[in-house]
Structures are given as structure tokens and as C-alpha cells.
Design a protein around this nucleic acid. Structure first.
Lengths: 137, 137
DNA sequence: CATAATGTAACCATTATAGTCACATATGGC
DNA sequence: GCCATATGTGACTATAATGGTTACATTATG
């Protein structure tokens, strides 16, 4: 599989929108900056739209723009919108029910994953699109 | 793709080894607890062996055992052995070199990823196989 | 020598991501 | 009304990772 770059592309696209928050941007222009296909952008931004981060308009002069201020969109919001969960955070579906170790592993790993997430989430929440715009501008 | 459970399986297998650290365990027995195929276990434990976490022996009475004390094997060691990196931590390979935003995104996302990793790594380092054995025993 | 194990190659199935084409739908300006 | 320009989405393909399975060479024990 090509490495999962959905989060990276989402942040990239949102940054473009945040830089000119008053204008609408077409999937074609965004795709040009990201170097991908407009359909890929439309599909990803459809998820961001469902999450309430962007807003779109059909037709001529249509396109995408942020649905709220850049300062109120954190990278945690972005990750939540485009990722089910981190790749590490996966348990096996099957297990040997007769094995006491197997039966306790799920709970133990859940605790581990929860502790990790409790560190990751606040870190992602700290940074907003406005911060990223500031780094570029 | 089936969800990536390599880390979960590795921790599971190492926990079994840690519970009876003096004995050798066959891939068949470990696979039975994890509910997978012995070859899957041998392949995963080959990576842990290359990382110096386990040791193996061929032939009758052969099998796997920890290469060092359970208290000196952290979950960070395990993750390093079996995962290239988190799925979130991926940049796109291509970009539009003419776009100033595209050109700066890689650096900005690298910083984000580094900050997240600086929170995740210490958290994983905190927990050792000995801690997990304690939770089970 | 028989048995029991790892190491690994060679497949296959499943799934996620990404890319592409096509087209229905909606909008704005002439 | 018409045309150009958008999004939304279905359908299909390619690529790659994970996981499962069989097979077999190798190695160690007794």
C-alpha cells in the first residue's frame, strides 16, 4: 500500500483554504498543489465537510472554503475527521478463549492504547490551522 | 486490509515467553494462544530476534525465549522492532514544487509528527513486559 | 535415524489507499 | 435558456501491506 498520507493531504488542503479564507478553492487547484487527482481531493474534503470543517458549493464560482475560523480547527479535529484510528491501535479479532493470557491481552492492550492516546490527543489539539498559517505566512 | 495487529501480536507472544522465561516455547503453542498460524508467529518473532528481544533454537526441544529480562524490554522496544512508524506519520512523495505552500508542508508536518512522537515514545518506554506479566499474574 | 523444531520461499485472499474516467447535478453569467 | 464550471459519487484499476497456508531445507535431541 502507498503510505497513508490522508492526514498530511488534509492538513495541506486546509492550509490552502485557511490562507485565503474568504475565497472558494476548487478541487482542481488544491490537487495541483498536492500533486494528486481532483477526485481524491473531493473525496477527502467530503469527509472534512461531514465533520463540519469545510463547506462546499456546486457550480461556477463554486469550490471549498473553511466552515469556521482557522484558529478553531485543531489538528486533532483533522485527524478525527480522516482517520479511524492509529495503525498501532488494533487488536486481533480472534483469540484462544481457553488461554488465560489471550483472554487478558485485549484489556491490557486497550489500557496501553488509551494511555498513548491520552498523550497524542492533547498534543494534536495544541496546534491549529492558524498556527500553521503563521508558520507559512 | 485486516487491521494491523502486528504490535498486539508481538506483545502477546512476548508476554507468553515472559511468563515462563526459563522454558522454550514453540511457534505452534504461541500461535494457538494468539489464534493464528505458526508461520505468522515465526515471521514476527524473526523480527523480534533481529532486534535482540528473543532468541530461538532449532530442532527438538527448540523454540523461542526472551533474550533478556522482561523488565528490560519496553513496549517502545517492541514497537521499534515490528513497526516502521505510525500510519499517521506519512508524507506524500510528490508535491507541486512551484507552490510555496506545498514546499513548506513537509517541514511543518515533520515538526508535528516529531512533537507527537516525543509524547508517544516516553509513554511506551514506561511499560515493560514485566509490568504486563504483573497485570496477568 | 526418527522426531520436532525454526527459517523461509512461494503462493493466495483480503483490504486500504490512491488514481482515473464518467456522469448526474447544481450554479452563475451571458 | 445555454454554456462553462463546479461538486458528488459510482465504477474500475493498480499497488502494497497484512495475514494465512503449504512445502521444504536445515538443525537439534535422544
Amino acid at each position: 500500500m502507498a503510505a497513508n498520507s490522508r492526514f498530511a493531504v488534509a492538513v495541506h488542503a486546509l492550509t490552502l483554504l485557511a490562507l485565503e479564507a474568504d475565497e472558494r478553492h476548487s478541487s482542481r487547484d488544491i490537487a495541483s498543489s498536492v500533486a494528486t487527482n481532483p477526485v481524491v481531493i473531493r473525496r477527502l474534503l467530503a469527509e472534512l465537510s461531514r465533520a463540519g470543517l469545510v463547506e462546499s458549493a456546486h457550480g461556477a464560482k463554486g469550490g471549498f472554503r473553511l466552515a469556521k475560523p482557522a484558529a478553531s480547527i485543531s489538528l486533532l479535529d483533522v485527524r478525527s475527521a480522516v482517520e479511524d484510528c492509529g495503525s498501532m491501535f488494533a487488536q486481533r479479532e480472534k483469540r484462544n478463549e481457553k488461554c488465560p493470557v489471550a483472554c487478558r491481552m485485549a484489556g491490557i492492550l486497550n489500557d496501553v492504547f488509551a494511555r498513548v492516546e491520552s498523550k497524542v490527543a492533547p498534543e494534536l489539539k495544541k496546534t491549529t490551522l492558524a498556527d500553521i498559517v503563521r508558520q507559512i505566512g
